[in-house]
């Protein structure tokens, strides 16, 4: 256990960085993903096509490849940003495609009659969307959103390969330094990730219960 207790503060620092990556990219992906989803649902064909292309390209490229592109590519073309930002751009863009698809399926899960009822009491298009369709779509989206965030939590570990000292980076260091306590270190770090994922699942389950409609 010495490996964990002696390095508690380094490990906690690592998880703090993991959580920062999670929060920053979670919010980034949510904003981008909402934008892309609204393009994807727009009545204008060009917008739908642009959003479709964005999703196809960025969802089907491995995250590691995207990070390599932003990490090495951006400085190459004269854009100077820190490690954290370069990695986060790739991570947010990648994750946003999953958010966009979750939102789109959520909107499609709302029966057409809901929008028709809203329109027939005189709601204009945007009000129909904000008052009736989106609130219900978001509910239907909670479970897939939670899955996206859980995947993101684990994906943040890719940052370890690019000089960010988050949890997995600490793990690599400790495994080298404490050759006899490797299992303890593995389980200790895994436990940290499990806690984060459980918090997300718990939050999602609560939201689902609070927002249920039947």
């Amino acid at each position: 256990m010495d490996a964990l207790t002696d390095n508690a503060s380094a490990i906690l620092d690592g998880f703090w960085l993991t959580i920062q990556l999670l929060v920053v990219n979670g919010i980034g992906a949510l904003v981008l993903g909402t934008l892309v989803a609204s393009l994807r649902l727009s009545p204008v064909p060009v917008m739908r096509a642009v959003a479709g292309l964005y999703i196809t390209v960025f969802r089907n490229t491995p995250l590691l490849v995207l990070i390599v592109i932003t990490y090495f590519g951006l400085p190459e073309v004269g854009i100077q940003l820190g490690f954290f930002t370069r990695i986060s751009i790739a991570m947010s863009v990648y994750t946003s495609t999953f958010i966009a698809e979750a939102l789109r399926s959520g909107v499609n899960a709302v029966p057409l009659g809901q929008a028709e009822a809203a329109r027939s009491i005189g709601m204009p298009f945007t009000m129909t969307l904000t008052q009736v369709v989106l609130p219900q779509a978001v509910r239907a989206t909670v479970p897939p959103m939670a899955s996206v965030l859980i995947a993101l939590t684990k994906n943040t570990s890719l940052a370890a390969g690019f000089g960010l000292a988050e949890a997995t980076f600490r793990l690599k260091g400790l495994v080298n330094d404490y050759a006899t306590e490797r299992w303890v270190i593995f389980f200790g770090i895994a436990l940290g990730y499990i806690v984060i994922v459980e918090v997300i699942s718990f939050g999602a389950a609560r939201l689902e219960r609070r927002w249920r409609v039947a």
Partner: peptide, 13 residues
């Protein structure tokens, strides 16, 4: 113009 549907379409939320 009021409209009443076969499937009610009350706002579920």
């Amino acid at each position: 113009v009021g409209m009443v549907f076969q499937s009610f379409n009350l706002f579920a939320h």
